[in-house]
């Protein structure tokens, strides 16, 4: 298999007041170009830690991470992150928040008007054309999350990293955003890693579901390839026996094999 992102023998330890804490140990994973990976596991197992490593926001204490053949030495716009809490800058409008990213990536090559068009296109992609001039405090949680996604997508990243992007949303908004995300990923063919708690979300969106064992010293327990053809439709899948089987497999991993986790922090 083609290795676009590869994670080789990666370990992460943190120095805490109580001594060393081994968060991750011996994590190995290869991700193909255009693949959608869902990262699932119990709370506190180290999903965010792994995602931050791929983003380059933290460096591994053991092993190495590669992206497109080069070592990941730090964060950069080719690996865009949708943060768990959207992290929009409150003093910039939605338009300006996205423009900041667009300027950084394309500012050297393109003129003002082109940058503006890219920003507007990103807003349109997530259905927020009307909210461009609003500040983050003036829009709903779901809208903020969509602006965060638009900001990441506007950078045309090689890799899209998302940390529970829909975690704080109500079920209806989440379903709509999942559908939008599927369309966007199909259109842009972005390589995506998404952290999630939600089994249905993982099965619906992912090409492969990476299931992590409980920490400390968490690692990848199982990898489940979801061979459901795209485009996927949530209503049709609800009656699909394969869907139910995938779902059951993930649930079994989480609640039988990894059941003895310390109560979610």
């Amino acid at each position: 298999m083609e290795k676009f992102v590869s994670i080789e023998n990666v370990g992460q330890t943190f120095d805490t007041r109580k001594g060393r804490f081994v968060a991750l140990r011996d994590v190995n994973l290869n991700i193909a170009r255009g693949e959608f990976i869902a990262l699932i596991g119990h709370s506190g197992c180290g999903k965010s830690t792994l995602l931050n490593l791929i983003a380059g926001l933290t460096r591994p204490t053991a092993g190495v991470l590669l992206c497109d053949g080069r070592e990941i030495a730090g964060p950069g716009p080719e690996r865009a992150v949708v943060f768990q809490n959207h992290s929009l800058l409150p003093w910039l409008t939605c338009h300006e928040n996205i423009l900041l990213a667009v300027e950084r990536v394309f500012g050297a090559r393109e003129r003002k008007a082109e940058l503006r068009d890219r920003t507007l296109a990103a807003l349109e992609l997530v259905g927020l054309t009307h909210a461009g001039q609003k500040y983050p405090s003036e829009i709903s949680g779901g809208m903020k999350q969509r602006v965060g996604i638009a900001r990441a997508l506007s950078m045309q990243p090689k890799v899209l990293l998302m940390d529970e992007p829909f975690g704080a949303l109500d079920a209806l908004t989440r379903a709509r955003l999942q559908d939008e995300l599927m369309k966007i990923c199909a259109a842009t063919k972005a390589t995506t890693v998404m952290v999630t708690h939600d089994v249905d979300e993982a099965v619906l969106l992912a090409d492969r579901i990476v299931m992590m064992t409980n920490g400390p010293a968490a690692t990848i327990g199982e990898i489940l390839a979801v061979e459901l053809e795209r485009p996927r439709n949530r209503l049709e899948l609800a009656h699909d026996s394969r869907y139910a089987a995938y779902r059951a497999a993930v649930l079994e991993f989480l609640y039988e094999k990894q059941a003895s986790h310390p109560v979610a922090a």
Binding site: G74, G76, P77, V81, F83, S87, A101, R104, M155
Partner: peptide
């Protein structure tokens, strides 16, 4: 830290970090 992480992911210049993130914050 969230805002600084945004700056790091975007790899903003020190000038942009000061004017767009530090100063308003």
């Amino acid at each position: 830290q969230d805002y600084l992480n945004v700056a790091r992911v975007l790899a903003l210049s020190e000038w942009k970090i000061v004017t767009r993130i530090l100063f308003p914050a």
